[in-house]
Structure formats: structure tokens, C-alpha cells
Amino acid sequence: MKQSILAIIPARGGSKGVPRKNIKNLAGKPLIAWTIEEAKKSKFITRLILSTEDEEIIKVAKQFDCEVPFTRPMDLAQDGTPGIDPVLHAIEQCPGYDYVVLLQPTSPLRTVEDIDGCIEMAIKHHANYCVSVTEPEYSPFWTYTIENGYLNPLIKQDKITPIRQDLPKTFKLNGAVYVAKVSAILQEKSFINSDTKAFIMPTNRSMDIDTELDFEICESILKKRRES
């Protein structure tokens, strides 16, 4: 039986790191367009919608043929709004789906293969949750806090391993794809728990735009990708 899947692109108007970043031109098109276009290629997504409070973002999304069935309430578009709240609101506004997929527009390097790979893993394993991860640039085994001026290892070890290849493999959330059964997320109100499957993505498709430097790096990568 085919699963019905609602995909949500959350894109509020406010942004401190890169002002108006969701509609800022990135390698020839608005940032949000990169996510819309890849999501529309998915063989699993039943319905793709945008969640925003911003009229200009709505206009841009519609130009790229993305449905905007509602305007997000302002109290769900603040700096301190938990990321899960707009997802729960969207599910409430668009009920009747088996799975929900969260696609943040700040991951423009993510491809439809990543989106469908994460969805497929969730369905294949009958998982309540599946999220995309990647290997971190720096191992947490080489990370420290400082207490009274002295280094304090974040992860306690009997002996510091000097060679990166000898360290245990670790992974971090990359923010690109979040998948959940609707029934499960309405109950847990989180994509991350002990029941979450990991979908591993390559580092070169895992950048999350938070600063102007991130934006410039992504633009360079996308231009090279287009040329090749």
C-alpha cells in the first residue's frame, strides 16, 4: 500500500545571520527555489507545501509552483519559536497523511536522491522517524570545554587518540531531511529520539546556510555543479 506523504518547507521572513535569506538570489535563483525544485522531483512526496508568514516569500514560492495553502500565524514565526511548532501546525492544517517530511530551505545542496533516500529508509524499515546526518568536520573526541583555564575533554577518554582515522566514527544532524510518521510525531512532538533511523549524506551536500560565508560557499559549489 502506497504511503501518503506531506512535505513541508518552512520559511519565515526573519533572519539574523543572512537577512531575507530564503528569497536571496543563490547561483541564479532564490534560495528557497533549490529546495522546491528538488522536492518536486520526488517519487514519494504526495503533496508539497510552504509554511510562512511572509507575503513576499509566498509570492516567490508560487512562482516556482509550490502550494501555499495557509499563512502561518505570526506567533509561530518568531526567533524563539521551536522548529517543531510550524510542522505540527502544518499537519493540523493539512490532515490525512501517513508521513510528514520537513525540508529546510537552508540546505540547497541536498538532492532529490537524498530526499527520496531518507523517505525510502523510513518506509522500508517501518520506522517512525528517519533524519539525515553527515560526518562532522571535527571529531567530538577532539573537542573540549575550558574550566578554570584548563582544557576539559567533552568526551572522557583514557587516552587521547592522535590519528583521526583511529577515532570512532561520529555523525551530526545536517538539517537537510526529516521524516516521520504523522501519528508518531503528533505524540512525541520531535523527530529525534531513540527510535530515529539515520540516513547518511555526504558532506559535500550537507551544508546548512546560517551565515554570509555559508551562502558564498554554497553559491560556489552550485555554480561548479551546474558547469559540470
Rank of each mutant, 00 (worst) to 15 (best):
M74N: 13
I49E: 10
D195E: 15
Q104A: 07
A11D: 07
E137G: 10
E37G: 05
A180N: 03
E53N: 09
K223C: 00
V87T: 14
T35N: 05
E113R: 01
A11F: 02
P82N: 08
G117H: 02
G17F: 09
W34H: 15
P108R: 10
M1T: 12
T106K: 11
V87Q: 08
T134I: 00
A198K: 13
Q3S: 14
A7M: 11
N22S: 12
S206Y: 05
N25P: 03
V68L: 01
D166Y: 02
C94R: 14
N128T: 06
I209N: 02
A180T: 04
K224I: 06
I5W: 05
E38P: 06
T161L: 08
S190Y: 04
E227P: 00
A180I: 02
L76R: 13
K169D: 14
A90S: 15
N22K: 02
D116R: 02
R226L: 01
V68S: 07
E38C: 01
L76D: 04
L222A: 06
P82Y: 12
S139C: 03
D208N: 15
K124Y: 08
I36Y: 03
E216K: 15
V133W: 01
I160E: 09
N193C: 07
T196L: 10
T71Q: 13
E188I: 03
I91H: 10
D75Y: 14
L213N: 00
T145V: 05
I9E: 11
I160H: 07
K40N: 04
I9H: 05
I123K: 00
N152P: 00
C66F: 02
D166Q: 14
F191W: 11
A77R: 04
K181C: 01
Q78H: 09
N22M: 13
I155C: 04
I209R: 00
V112T: 11
P30T: 13
L222C: 05
D114M: 04
V100A: 12
L50Q: 09
Q165I: 10
W34P: 11
A33Q: 06
F215K: 05
F70R: 08
E212V: 09
I91D: 08
T196Q: 04
S206M: 08
P202H: 10
H125A: 10
T52L: 03
V18K: 05
E219R: 07
P162I: 01
A122M: 11
L154W: 02
G14M: 13
P105H: 14
C218R: 01
A127N: 01
D166L: 07
L151E: 15
